[in-house]
Design a protein around this nucleic acid. Sequence first.
RNA 1: GUGGCCGUAGCUCAAAGGUAGAGUCCCGGAUUGUGAUUCCGGUUGUUGUGGGUUCGAGUCCCAUCGGCCACCCCA
Length: 419
Amino acid sequence: MSQTIQAVRGMNDVLPDEAGWWLEFEAKVEAWLERYGYRNIRLPLVEHTQLFRRAIGEATDIVEKEMYSWRDELNDEELTLRPEGTASCVRAAIEHSLLHDGPKRLWYAGPMYRHERPQKGRYRQFHQYGVEALGYAGPDIDAELIVMCAALWRELGLQDVRLELNTIGSPAERARYRADLVRHLEQHLERLDADAKRRLHTNPLRTLDSKNPMVQEVVASAPALADYLGEASLAHFEGLKRLLEAAGIRYAINPRLVRGLDYYNLTVFEWISDRLGAQGTVCGGGRYDGLFAQLGGKPAPATGFAMGNERLIALMRDAGSAPPAKPPRAYVVFQGEGTIEYALSLAEELRRLGYRVVQHAGGGSFKSQMRKADASGAVYALIVGEDELRAGEVSVKPLREPGEQRRIARGRVAEALGD
RNA sequence: GUGGCCGUAGCUCAAAGGUAGAGUCCCGGAUUGUGAUUCCGGUUGUUGUGGGUUCGAGUCCCAUCGGCCACCCCA
């Protein structure tokens, strides 16, 4: 048995080289959210288990087998590490009456937890941005969400992310459809796989999405959900499509797109990339008008989406935009009696002016200090020796561009560093 | 949770049952205070971990942990 302790499976460290991409991604996403007038909400990682059972649905894979749940013996409570953010967001909106003065545009970010087998682009701790528009009923807000996604992909430099769109109607329409679908599936029991049979009476709509060719044949001859939609549902969908077309957003209708979580109705959509292997969904969402009531709140329409940071960052790197490097402007080296104090105050002075300045630490020969200065990527080495100390000066040596080392008065170092 | 492939130096990879190596990185030096280039020297390690077979295992077998790919599902 190894002595070292490893990270928990599927829960990854983001090391400094990679964290640069994360910072750039987060900065771009948050600036983008601000431009659309969405406000941040910060939600706990842990919720009562019951919240997710009620919101996501008992028959979903998430609730059936992927939640990190435990009993907190100290308080005698059933708790769960959040597997997604929408349930928490709606819970908070109800708990604090956030909609009392009108609808709200909100966003949140952070880690989510699902106990799945790790795979490329799929981890047990993964991170997402969630964007939720609470209290808006019309297709205009659905269109807004989709249009803003398209803008973000452009902002991140992503090329081929495609949109799949569908409508799954109202709960009543879906119930009628579901009954007919179950009847159809039951007539072809012998061609259903174990998974489809198991879902027959728990979540039959999910079999529409099956990748098993034999099941797909059965599905192909099944009644279509679109034929069960009433006038209002159709109008909502038509309205959305019209707005998307006006905005120049290309989409593909995917009638088999139902999405996994129970709380969706009407609009559902996914943004998909083909560059990520099997885990190609980069962003997914839809409307969930029933969720407020389902969680015991005053009924309110709502719509939103979540996007996966790991997957989007992978695409961003793939797109080859330059890796974000933020080298220091100057690296301060020093040698001799009393020079460290001089160097330290020089560095502080420059930082107060806004420069990124690294002060050498850890000793070593002058040569090795210079090596570190170079390795830091700094544009200049600032050299403080006993001569400079006595004269109240600093030697400024360019490390990146041609140019001579100059000895200048301490007070003029900042201008030597330029902007 | 199921199936397939794979774990050797910090990193990228050799060693086809017989003494664990290369490149890179890192550290030190090339006449006293000058990086990156060049030259010289040095450490790279319980071969993921634990068992087994064998005179002998990085190599063969089993288990376990981890990674990748796919299924399932989703971000």
